[in-house]
């Protein structure tokens, strides 16, 4: 019977101690934020999805389309589309597709990028109910008003045209030579045929 009362006393005591702390906490300021009205400041190092960096001098991306980000990605989330344009040095980025549904934000692409053309963004409001919304074209995100055409270097264009012309000429010459050779080959064959015919008769 004494144990029964002792239990009640210790129980009430621990209840009082607990409530004391709860009451103290009740009077402090709330530590939560009312999310849609206020939001948390993001840290500059926060890893959102990757984004292309705009070069302040040219206003373009500095991607050289080497494909190292694509190769280094553990989940194959990145695909870089590029093409050669006349009069532009190197390859031109035409689309940078990031499939964010499979990205794990490990940072291998950012580390692999030699020219520093990609970095983590601070974007986190990405909720959506459609899967297609997470397949980003980062080039379009970088230039929302339309992808600008790369500047054509007239000297380089001239050089390239000359080179192409030369290559064309060379190819034509090669073709001619090949045709001549073919004809030369055919002639002895013809002769052989004739001789055969003679033998038969």
């Amino acid at each position: 019977m004494s144990g029964y009362f002792k239990d009640i006393i210790t129980g009430l005591k621990s209840l009082a101690v607990g409530l004391q702390i709860t009451n103290k906490e009740f009077l402090t300021k709330p530590i939560t934020l009312l999310y849609p009205h206020e939001s948390v400041k993001m840290y500059p190092r926060y890893r959102g999805h990757i984004e292309l960096v705009k070069d302040p001098e040219t206003g373009m991306n500095s991607c050289i389309c080497c494909g190292m980000c694509e190769k280094g990605c553990p989940s194959g989330s990145i695909s870089v589309k590029s093409e050669k344009r006349p009069g532009v040095k190197g390859k031109v980025l035409t689309a940078y597709i990031l499939n964010f549904t499979t990205c794990s934000l490990c940072g291998q692409c950012v580390e692999n990028c030699k020219p520093g053309a990609i970095r983590f963004s601070n974007e986190y409001n990405l909720a959506s109910t459609r899967r297609e919304d997470y397949i980003f074209n980062l080039l379009e995100k970088l230039h929302p008003e339309g992808i600008p055409e790369p500047e054509v270097d007239p000297e380089l264009l001239k050089k390239e045209l000359e080179k192409a012309e030369a290559a064309k000429k060379a190819a034509a010459a090669k073709k001619e030579a090949a045709a001549k050779q073919e004809a030369a080959k055919k002639e002895p064959a013809k002769e052989g045929g004739e001789s055969k015919a003679e033998e038969k008769s």
Binding site: I31, Y43, R45, Y46, R47, S104, L105, C106, G107, F120
Partner: peptide
């Protein structure tokens, strides 16, 4: 959770992620 948030904020400021650190 109150205290845990403080740690997550600290780690986020240096690693960039809150739980799945790389």
């Amino acid at each position: 959770m109150d205290e845990r948030e403080q740690i997550l904020d600290l780690l986020e400021s240096v690693t960039g992620s809150r739980l799945t650190y790389c």
